[in-house]
Amino acid sequence: MALTKLYDNHGRHINYVRLAVTDRCNLRCFYCMPEEGIKYVSKEALLSYEEMLRLMHLLADMGIEKVRITGGEPFVRRDMIYFLRQLCAIEGIKKVNITTNGTLTEDLVPELKSIGINSVNLSLDALDKDRFFEITRRDAYDKVMATYRALLEHNMPTKINAVVMDGKNIEDIIPMAMLTQKDPVSVRFIEEMPFNGEGAHYETLAWNHRQILKHLQASFPDMEKLPDPPYSTSYNYQIPGHKGSVGIIAAYSRTFCGTCNRIRITPKGMLKTCLYDDGVFNIRDIMRQGATDAQLKSTFREALGNRAKDGWEAERNRSFGLPVQESMSTIGG
């Protein structure tokens, strides 16, 4: 049972960690990394499963209740099911969710459900096979759709994450929203961010959350606003008669920072108290230098006691004023 709850210096309750287990990925998505890929870190530089489990035990004792496993692509790392089984057994962790590109996930869905995975976020940016190839630079559409069908077959709560990219997948917005007509899924449209290993693709973001909503409303004028859950990053909507829902995430506009309840740990063990900061301290190094549990807890509290108010402040405070240009794969999508 948690002894104390975590709060930042703005009074925000922190109960959610996004844990990136690898920076490796078998796709090369336009919005995530350059076509030639990125320089991956060595195996020794990654947090080991034992180190990650130690951290999750500590954070659970500090009030963390929800963990999202991200990458890279989590399932390119060996023995991931073993790790997930141990993670789901930690006292105090109420929800373990996974974000995956779906290329390696189809056959794992029954086991994911049996070990207690709460939900899956499936990255899918196009329903047109050619546009999917252009965005991901890989011929993996059929594998991803097979995973989608497996998730539905096994009644796994599923969200579809689609990054909206000008000139890349605008034609897919309405067809993707139509997935919710017959399938009980949440399709979330996400503003593109500059975490692609190169920097922002556009001088201004034409397809922000307002433009995405306007586009949806043109096809679904009766679309109704749903109440947003606590800490929600998405504005959620229901199309009358549809089984699922539609969400819009203002990931670049950063309109949800005021209720942010999450921290991130990168594959190399860097703590990020905001997606847009460049890292607060390296947990891996402190652990390997022999830090006690009490020292690690104290370091987390100190970091959260100096947290940026929002993503704009975090970006302004980056070292040497350098702009955002790292790959999302190195952070944890």
Rank of each mutant, 00 (worst) to 15 (best):
T292L: 05
M178I: 00
H154S: 02
L152I: 08
P184W: 01
D166F: 01
Y31M: 07
H215S: 14
R54P: 00
P230I: 13
F83A: 06
I135K: 15
Q238G: 04
S42C: 11
M62H: 04
M176I: 04
P110E: 04
T255G: 04
M328I: 15
E198I: 11
N282V: 07
Q238N: 09
L304V: 01
H154I: 04
E198G: 04
M52T: 12
K143M: 06
Y16E: 01
I331D: 04
K272P: 04
S232E: 02
K129V: 10
F83D: 09
Y141H: 15
L152S: 11
G258W: 01
P194F: 03
A146N: 08
S319A: 10
R307Y: 02
L322K: 15
E198N: 14
L53E: 05
F220K: 03
A303L: 02
H201E: 03
N236Q: 12
Y235S: 13
V185P: 13
E326R: 13
C29N: 11
I64G: 03
C25P: 05
E171A: 08
P240A: 07
S114A: 15
G305Q: 11
R77G: 04
F320D: 14
L213N: 06
G167K: 12
Q211T: 09
T273A: 09
Q325H: 15
C32Q: 05
T99Q: 11
I160Q: 12
P240V: 11
Y7I: 14
A60N: 15
V41H: 12
V163L: 11
L108S: 00
K129P: 01
L27D: 04
T99I: 06
R18M: 11
E111L: 11
K113W: 10
V185W: 09
I173K: 05
N9D: 06
T259L: 05
S298H: 13
G241S: 07
T158K: 10
D8R: 14
T4I: 09
A294V: 14
I64K: 07
R131V: 13
D128K: 04
K182Q: 06
G269F: 08
E198L: 08
M328S: 09
L151N: 07
K272D: 03
E35F: 04
T103L: 12
S245V: 13
L124E: 07
E36F: 08
R149D: 10
I190D: 00
L112D: 10
Y202T: 09
Q211Y: 13
K66Y: 08
V109T: 00
G11Q: 12
L19G: 10
D285A: 08
Y49T: 08
E106P: 00
P230V: 03
R254C: 02
S123L: 08
K297H: 15
I173F: 01
A200N: 02
F256S: 15
D183E: 12
I265D: 13
F320E: 05
L216W: 06
I14G: 00
D107K: 14
R54W: 14
M328A: 12
F220V: 03
K243S: 07
Q289F: 01
T147W: 03
D130T: 13
N26R: 14
I14N: 05
A303S: 00
H209P: 00
N9C: 14
T4W: 06
P194S: 08
T273F: 03
L216D: 14
E198P: 01
M193K: 15
P157G: 11
R68S: 06
L205S: 02
D79V: 02
